[in-house]
């Protein structure tokens, strides 16, 4: 917990954002949780083929990192990207439809869980390649700078990606060219089964920012306010032309890496300890504490988000499947080609 909160001081988020915005953020966090629980349930019922990477437990990182972004601003996401997508304003029905492989999905059933994108909202897409989005985010920032749009790109990546070569190349070039990009590392402590202690030479991934002469900060990724405070500052810095920053949100995924994970590399005690620090409960407590919402309000929000998810699943499951004869559509923009 940040000191500001413990000391009874008003947290950053409460100071910086209106109650409406904060309630919307809480709602998004709930939607992320319920979307993924709904996806998991659908998977269990055999409605979804393929695997999925759930970010349950990381909702504060996703929503907190997008607080100061507009639809003009871009994000690049990861294989664990549902949260980023919701945080950037995606439609839950189209997300579920993509999950179910439907023509009404964000990618018309061609992408699935790992490639959900929403370019209209500035979401350039999740990515199945660890580190794949890092250079692309820098490219988007290059466009913004060249075209003078004033847009900032937030690049989400995991602790695993920080050991890819693309991380080095992307951060270096972003710094050399002072591009408006914020690198947000969601350190959930494991790249599949391998802990950051076993894979990464520095204690904090943010320490690596020194190599690229950019600011780096490590925050409690389960504390919405702390995340928002760090990322907002970095976005402001990028927008004012001072170049990139690196923010490390330390968090934890409650579920396994994917549906095939048998959880042999971490203890039940460790998982339970992190579940005690539920970012949604913490966020709700903060808002109750500051009289922005009460228990009944939280319950009403729970009911509302549950219904949204239910409706989204109904929409998705009732949507048409893609036409098999169009399996190769959209490979090229000009369909005459190839």
């Amino acid at each position: 917990m940040p000191d500001t909160f413990k000391d009874g001081n008003v947290p950053y988020a409460v100071r910086a954002y209106s109650p409406e915005v904060l309630l919307a953020a809480l709602k998004k966090m709930m939607l992320i949780r319920k979307f993924e629980e709904g996806a998991e349930d659908s998977y269990t019922r055999g409605l979804i083929h393929g695997t999925m990477h759930l970010s349950i437990g990381q909702e504060a990182s996703a929503v907190g990192s997008c607080m100061s972004l507009t639809d003009e601003d871009k994000i690049t996401s990861t294989h664990r990207g549902h949260g980023h997508c919701v945080a950037k304003g995606a439609d839950l029905g189209k997300m579920f439809a993509e999950f179910f492989g439907k023509e009404t999905g964000y990618c018309k059933g061609r992408g699935g869980s790992m490639h959900i994108a929403d370019p209209a909202k500035g979401n350039l897409g999740a990515n199945g390649i660890v580190g794949g989005g890092l250079p692309i985010a820098v490219g988007a920032a290059l466009s913004a700078k060249r075209l003078g749009t004033g847009a900032v790109t937030v690049c989400f990546f995991g602790d695993g990606a920080n050991n890819e070569g693309a991380f080095h190349e992307a951060l270096n070039m972003a710094a050399v060219w002072k591009l408006p990009v914020v690198f947000v590392c969601e350190n959930n402590k494991y790249g599949m089964s391998t802990s950051t202690e076993r894979s990464t030479a520095v204690k904090n991934i943010a320490d690596r920012s020194a190599s690229y002469s950019m600011p780096g900060v490590t925050v409690d990724g389960n504390d919405f306010s702390a995340v928002a405070e760090a990322v907002d500052a970095a976005v402001e810095r990028a927008r004012s032309g001072e170049g990139p920053s690196l923010v490390e949100n330390v968090t934890y995924r409650w579920r396994g890496h994917s549906k095939s994970d048998r959880n042999r590399y971490r203890t039940k005690e460790e998982i339970a300890e992190w579940m005690e620090r539920d970012p949604i409960a913490t966020m709700a407590a903060m808002l109750i504490d500051h009289k922005i919402i009460d228990q009944d309000g939280v319950a009403a929000l729970e009911a509302e988000t549950t219904q949204i998810i239910k409706d989204a699943i109904t929409f998705a499951s009732g949507s048409p499947d893609p036409d098999v004869s169009e399996a190769t559509r959209d490979v090229y923009t000009q369909e005459a080609a190839a």
Binding site: L134, I136, V138, A141, S143, M173
Partner: peptide
């Protein structure tokens, strides 16, 4: 790798 990826990202976003 980074250069190619930046070009991809730039192409995606208007350059």
């Amino acid at each position: 790798l980074g250069g190619a990826g930046i070009a991809v990202g730039a192409a995606l976003t208007g350059l």
